[in-house]
Each structure stands twice: as structure tokens, then as C-alpha cells.
Design a protein around this nucleic acid. Structure first.
Lengths: 166, 166
DNA sequence: GTTGATAATCTCAACGTTGAAATAACAGCA
DNA sequence: TGCTGTTATTTCAACGTTGAGATTATCAAC
């Protein structure tokens, strides 16, 4: 079964037979998959009254364990966005009562962002169906393919230096 | 070698041992890779005086073959963006003299976007170093791994319905 | 030929991110 | 104690996309 990237590479083979465009077979697919999967996740979270970025923040705090708090800096490294974006996200989530800003006792430049009871309840409620939804999106791969795929992607990520969550 | 997603999954295993979060091993990596690779491509194109989206439009037209023209609709399906975004892109690229709008003789609702001589020269000049740059970013994979990775991603993309470029 | 449904593009306000500058605080060292 | 360089967060204007609506054109059916 051909996908959109196969068509793209066929076009290049005809137009520029002098070039071997094999990297596009990976780069193009990661890019298109990312967009398609983002759309799916967006739709899923909308059905649960959440924006995707809201869930990302909630989940980052949740998986950090009690007391469910992280600095703003840790959150922006985890989300791979700039500090301005995180300030904005915290503002809006605090307004919704999902997180609260706590002054950091050890460093007055820092703030700690803490999950409220409501935020904790929400993320714990949505997490399982979210994972089930992700599994549905990946259902075309059998378990062996999944493992190989995850391993190859890990190799790539690590080679690009993505080894910490901040 | 662990990557950021391994850390993330370890955290979930500790906090929610009742859940098997294996899908995150793939979804999380595709998402993070997409961001990291986008940054790299952005940097590369900036060094050549181009925005990433500009190159995408140029390349889409170039690989369609002579006379290097496509409708606006074909371009927005290929780029996976909305029609408003494509209108905006065409405006700016036409202002730079990289493409021109041609009325479609067969359908007066349509326009055809055609590569100018300057646009064609630019994309042909940047293409080879671009592919080389992509190959550099993927250098951590050996040829067999590349093929398996591309195949698994193809399976996924096709299962999500991404089988045409418009 | 007229009607009604569909399609292609453009318009525009709302939205969120970026990137850079501003502010405040820490840390090491003379 | 006072410098100097660094770090954490916030602020804000610029930018590009989205999503919905407006416009214009096509096509099939009557």
C-alpha cells in the first residue's frame, strides 16, 4: 500500500533522477504523521473539554509524582516551547483552576507550578482513554513492528540530543 | 542509550503502574522528532534565505514536473494546511517573485500557481544540499534500519488515510 | 435556462507561538 | 561588600495559522 510519501518520491525520481532522495522517506513521513496524529489528538481532547497543550502540561506534572509540581522552566523544556509560551499556558490554566503558581522557597526567581485537586482529578480521568485512543491510532502495527519502530525512533532522538526532559 | 521518552515512560510506570503506556513510546517520539527536525530544517533554510514553508511550496511545484504549476487546492492538500494559509503563502511568494498566479483556463474558480524562472532556479539550487542535510540528520541509522523505519511509518501513514498528495 | 448543491479561493478576526528585551535574583570571586 | 556573569520568569509586538464566512463559478437535474 502506497502512502503520500511514496507518491512524492516517485515524482522526485522522475524529475530529478540524479538525486537519491531516500531521506525524504523518513523525514516526510515523520512530518506528515505528526500533523495527522496531532489532529486526532486534538479531536480527542476537545471531546473531553481540553486543549492538547493543556493535557500536556497536566500530564507532565502528573507523571512527575507528588507533590505534582515543577518549575516553569522544567515545563517549557518538557513541552519544547519557549518560556513565553509557558507563561501564557500557566496563566490560562491557573484561570481555569487546573494549576496554581507557588513561590519557590529556595529560589525567588523561580515559581513552582502545582496541579490542583481539580487538575489531578482531570488528568487521571482522561489518561486511560487517551492511551487507548493512541493505541487505536497505532493499531495497524503488530507488536513486533511497534518495538522496532520505537527502537529506531529512540536511536534518532538520542542522536539528536533529546535525552532529558528538563 | 535512553532518550527523553524513555524517561517519560519510566515516570508513568512509577506513577501509574496500572497502565501500559506503550503507545507513548511511538507517539511521543514522533512528536518530539518532528519538532527537533523542524528546527534543524528551519536553520538550514534560513542559511539559504528561505522559510521552510517557502521551500515546501517550491518543492511541491518542482516535483510536479513541467510546466511547474498546480492549483491552490493541490498545494494546500500537499502542505496539509488550510486554504487561508495557502492564499497567504502564495501572496508572499508572488511578492518575492518566486511564483506567479495564472488563471485556470478550464475552471474560472481555480488559479494555477506557477514557478517562475527564479523560483525554479532557487529550488534546484537548494535541493541537493537539503537532501544532504536530511541525510546528515538521519546518519545514526544504518541502511537496514532506515528501510525498516520507513516501512513502519508507511504502514502507519497509510492506515491513517494519507494516500494522496491532492 | 433555471435551480440547487457543491467546489475553489479569498477574507478576516481570533488565537498561540516566537524571539527579544526587561526584570529580578542568584553565585562566584575579588 | 560590591562586581560580573548567569539564570528564571514575564512582557509584548510581530508573525502565521485556523476556522468560519463570503464570493464566485461549476455541474447535474429538471
Amino acid at each position: 500500500m502506497d502512502d503520500a510519501v511514496d507518491l512524492l518520491m516517485t515524482q522526485w525520481a522522475r524529475e530529478r533522477p540524479d538525486l537519491d532522495v531516500w531521506p525524504m522517506g523518513i523525514m516526510g513521513r515523520i512530518s506528515r504523521l505528526s500533523r495527522l496524529l496531532d489532529r486526532e489528538l486534538k479531536e480527542f481532547f476537545a471531546a473531553h473539554g481540553l486543549e492538547r497543550w493543556e493535557f500536556d502540561v497536566l500530564a507532565t506534572l502528573r507523571r512527575s509524582g507528588p507533590p505534582y509540581e515543577l518549575t516553569a522552566g522544567a515545563l517549557n523544556r518538557a513541552a519544547m516551547v519557549t518560556s513565553g509560551a509557558i507563561t501564557n499556558r500557566i496563566d490560562r490554566m491557573a484561570a481555569r483552576g487546573l494549576v496554581e503558581r507557588i513561590p519557590d522557597s529556595g529560589d525567588r526567581r523561580s515559581i513552582r507550578v502545582r496541579l490542583t485537586g481539580r487538575g489531578l482529578a482531570l488528568v487521571d480521568e482522561v489518561l486511560e482513554p487517551h492511551v487507548a485512543n493512541e493505541a487505536r491510532l497505532l493499531a495497524s502495527l503488530d507488536p513486533r513492528e511497534r518495538d522496532h519502530l520505537a527502537a529506531a525512533l529512540r536511536t534518532l532522538l538520542a542522536s539528536l540530543g533529546d535525552t532529558t526532559l528538563g
